[in-house]
């Protein structure tokens, strides 16, 4: 019976690294989405990605990285708080924005693409 503990150890760190890196990539995607998307309600989707998927992956990666210590317990607490607060906050923002009359920019009105504008589009 080959001793699989060292392999598990290596696997743990590899997995942790992968999760961390994945989380960071999604974070970047979410941030770019926040910057580039034209409308408030679209941006709220971008914020959604970072608040849920990226956070879970990052915290899972860190937990794996730190193994079974007090830090992991604290990380779990952070995860719970973020899990509870950020969706509620995003819900509250969307609710308030809608109530305040911020209309989403529906597909019908296509903003002229900057290139067409330069060419004096119809």
């Amino acid at each position: 019976m080959i001793d699989i503990m060292p392999y598990l150890e290596i696997l743990r760190y590899v997995l942790a690294g992968a999760l961390l890196f994945g989380g960071a990539v999604f974070m970047i995607i979410g941030a770019v989405g926040m910057l580039r998307l034209p409308d408030f309600y679209a941006r709220i989707h971008a914020a959604g990605i970072t608040d849920t998927l990226a956070t879970v992956m990052l915290i899972a990666g860190m937990m794996l990285h730190s193994g079974f210590t007090q830090t992991t317990a604290k990380l779990a607490l952070v995860a719970i708080f973020l899990f509870l607060t950020s969706p509620t906050a995003t819900h509250a923002v969307a609710n308030a924005a809608h109530k305040a009359g911020l209309k989403p920019r529906l597909g019908k009105v296509q903003p002229p693409h900057p290139r067409d504008k330069m060419k004096g589009a119809k």
Binding site: L84, T85, T88, H91, A92, N95, K99
Partner: peptide
């Protein structure tokens, strides 16, 4: 409308 906030 704020049942969510109250529960949280």
């Amino acid at each position: 409308h704020h049942i969510v906030l109250q529960v949280v």
